[in-house]
Amino acid sequence: MKRIKMGCTTLSIPAMALGIMRMNQKSVPEAQVAIQAAYDAGINFIDSADIYGGGKSEEIFGQAFSQMQIKREEMFIQSKTGIVPGKRYDFSKEHILHSVDEILERMQLDYLDSLVLHRPDALMDPEEVAEAFDQLQAAGKVRFFGVSNFDTAQFKLLQSCLSQRLMFNQLQFSLKHTGMIDFGMHMNMVDKPSVDRDSQFLDYARLHKVTVQAWSPFQYGMFEGTFIDNDGFPKLNQELQKLADKYEVGKNAIAAAWILRHPANIQMLVGAMNPQHIRDSAKGAKIRLTRQEWYDLYLAAGNYLP
């Protein structure tokens, strides 16, 4: 598995992480098979969130992982907090501290390697978040911190009040969600792709050594479904298959290789629970697409160059 530097540190993390959003749909033995498949492929990074399956995903993970032979220190385990489903976003100190305690209990852990704030809270008080982070770190409950779906100004605002460096920003990125790179190639144009919806965060991340974590790497829309083997995207699947045949892997591996080919050292979050899909996706970390292959996939996905 390809390894990348975590944020501004010298620590090494895998270029892929296993997202456990759908683990609530699995039995404990099935969850163990998925975790083991990821670990055997070099994916020793887990990404979760307190809202996944209403907390059930973390419960299943905790039960499964506690019975496995993998040592805790061999895994990097991350979770997210800040969304109260259907009610509000909540970055209050009280909510953050309480959520972490619940996460640790569900996952049967003594600490999280990383805590990520989920979607931006309009009522965020950066100083209050800083107090929560300091308390969590001092108590040994969280080692590192990050955010998810933050624009550049929101990221800078929070960072200005923290004593810790923010290591991550989770952003949606895939062959069918390319806004982070479209506007740069459509600079000085007036067409739809020229609109910057991500406040140039990918460039900011490269300048300030922030690890971008790409979520929904095989999805189109937000959660409409996968574009892999989807009849609605024939040209893209034809190009994926062509390259899959060349590199002797599956389409998931090629779609993953496309994301990892970007020089920003993006970490991709694999949300699959199917061991075969996990193993195939992991193969993408060993493939370095040519520049033309990368652009061929970009164009086959329905994008165009000015």
Score class of each variant (00 low, 15 high):
Gly184Glu: 10
Gln159Gly: 01
Val195His: 14
Ala49Asp: 01
Val100Thr: 02
Leu157Met: 15
Met180Val: 12
Tyr298Asn: 00
Arg72Gln: 10
Ser216Met: 10
Asp90Gln: 12
Asn24Gln: 13
Ile254His: 00
Pro263Gln: 06
Ser148Leu: 08
Arg261His: 11
Glu74Asn: 13
Ser57Leu: 11
Asn303Asp: 08
Leu109Asn: 00
Ala285Met: 12
Asp121Ile: 12
Ile4Asn: 01
Phe183Ile: 01
Ser66Arg: 09
Gln267Gly: 02
Leu175Asn: 06
Arg143Asp: 04
Met75Gln: 04
Met180Ser: 11
Ala139Pro: 02
Lys242Glu: 10
Ser163Met: 06
Ala256Trp: 00
Lys242Trp: 01
Gly7Leu: 05
Ala122Cys: 03
Asn188Met: 12
Met222Tyr: 15
Gln135Val: 08
Lys26Arg: 14
Glu239Leu: 04
Asp231Glu: 13
Met268Gln: 06
Gly146Ala: 06
Met268Val: 14
Pro85Tyr: 10
Ile43Arg: 00
Trp258Phe: 11
Arg279Lys: 15
Asp110Asn: 15
Glu248Tyr: 05
Leu305Gly: 07
Ser160Ile: 05
Lys176Leu: 12
Met273Cys: 10
Ala41Lys: 04
Thr211Cys: 02
Met1Phe: 07
His208Trp: 09
Ile77Leu: 02
Ile51Leu: 13
Val33Asp: 12
Arg106Ser: 08
Val147Ala: 05
Gly179Ala: 11
Gly232Glu: 11
Leu299Gly: 01
Ala256Ser: 11
Asn303Phe: 08
Phe45Ile: 02
Ser12Glu: 15
Thr81Ser: 13
Tyr89Phe: 13
Val190Asp: 15
Asp191Leu: 04
Glu74Leu: 05
Val100Ser: 02
Gln267Arg: 04
Gln108Leu: 05
Val116Phe: 06
Pro29Trp: 13
Lys71Ile: 01
Met187Arg: 13
Lys141Leu: 13
Asp121His: 12
Ser27Asp: 11
Thr211Gly: 01
Arg72Pro: 00
Phe227Val: 03
Ser216Gln: 09
Glu74His: 11
Leu18Glu: 00
Leu166Gly: 00
Ile181Glu: 07
Asp191Tyr: 04
Lys246Trp: 03
Leu305Val: 13
Pro29Gly: 06
Asp134Met: 05
Gln36Val: 04
Gly140Ala: 11
Gly284Thr: 07
Arg143Asn: 08
Met68Trp: 09
Ile83Glu: 09
Gln292Glu: 14
Pro29Glu: 14
Pro14Ile: 04
Thr9Ala: 02
Met189Cys: 13
Lys56Val: 06
Thr152Asp: 07
Leu202Ser: 07
Val28Tyr: 10
Val116Ile: 15
Val147Asp: 03
Leu171Gln: 12
Gln154Trp: 11
Ala272Arg: 02
Phe145Val: 01
Phe91Cys: 01
Phe201Val: 06
Met273Ser: 13
Asn24Val: 04
Ser79Leu: 03
Ile35Trp: 01
Ala64Leu: 07
Pro120Lys: 09
Ala264Glu: 03
Phe183Ser: 02
Phe233Arg: 05
Phe227Ser: 02
Glu59Val: 05
Gly140Asn: 08
Pro193Gln: 08
Leu202Tyr: 10
Glu248Gln: 14
Val33Ala: 11
Ile278Trp: 00
Met1Asn: 08
Glu74Tyr: 04
Lys141His: 05
Ser48Asn: 14
Gly62Asp: 05
